[in-house]
């Protein structure tokens, strides 16, 4: 899933300081799963914003809404009758949400309330780690299902670099050296020889380096 973090409250307060009536829109997709933009988080942020505003002696009206997904025009349409009844709309979805909203309702102003970070999953309750960088050409079968593109700090296809120590990456003792894990897995499986192969420079055109990307499924296009 897409993993995001909530923006700090004061940053959100600063964004909306000129508005008295806002809409806060959550999403039931990834951000619900990573506990950042689901129903509960919409309610919490809405009350925090109201309380904060009250301290300043003003009132803030917050309309709380939940959409099935904010990356689908069908659900974005559900705000058609109410989007312009407020001064601004805040999205709690990943970076896709506020953009789909913005494209559908050009006359309204939209704000993000989360910082969208990566594709990953929960490694334990409350902790999410990155797994994929969306490079567009998956090569993890060469590395026993572990991705050095997203998980090695230098995206090395031939690792580990000289900075790998005790299974940790040179950038921090908190960061796993994925190359250490790849090598150990190969050793355990008796296939270290696999890592003696040369891998050609990667074609980054399928990643963001080829410009914004599009995916077309001909059979679905009407």
């Amino acid at each position: 899933m897409i993993v995001a973090d909530r923006k700090p409250l004061d940053e959100i307060q600063e964004m909306i300081k000129d508005y008295d009536k806002i809409m806060l829109v959550g999403c039931k997709g990834c951000v619900t799963v990573c506990n950042v933009g689901g129903l509960k988080e919409v309610q919490i942020l809405a009350s925090a914003l109201r309380i904060g505003r009250k301290k300043d002696g003003r009132t803030l009206h917050v309309e709380e809404r939940m959409l099935e997904r904010q990356c689908d025009p069908e659900y974005i349409e559900q705000l058609r009758d109410s989007y312009d009844s407020v001064d601004a709309v805040l999205s709690m979805a990943c970076g896709v949400g506020p953009q789909f909203l913005s494209e559908t309702y050009p006359s309204q102003r939209f704000y993000p309330t989360v910082n969208t970070k990566f594709f990953g999953g929960a490694v334990q309750h409350g902790i999410w780690d990155e797994r994929c960088a969306g490079c567009g050409t998956c090569v993890i079968h060469y590395f026993d299902g572990l991705c050095p593109i997203a998980r090695c700090s230098k995206s090395l296809q031939h690792g580990p670099c000289g900075g790998s120590a005790d299974g940790k990456c040179e950038i921090s003792k908190e960061t796993e050296c994925i190359w250490d894990t790849i090598v150990k897995k190969k050793v355990d499986q008796g296939r270290l020889e696999d890592l003696r192969l040369y891998r050609a420079p990667k074609d980054w055109r399928t990643a963001r380096d080829g410009g914004p990307r599009r995916s077309i499924r001909e059979e679905l296009v009407k």
Partner: peptide
């Protein structure tokens, strides 16, 4: 390959790593 920019005096920078040292 090069030391990661995290160590240096411009940790805010974007890195490249288009190819690696063996390439």
């Amino acid at each position: 390959s090069g030391d990661h920019q995290q160590f240096g005096n411009h940790p805010e920078s974007k890195n490249v790593f288009d190819i690696d040292s063996i390439q």
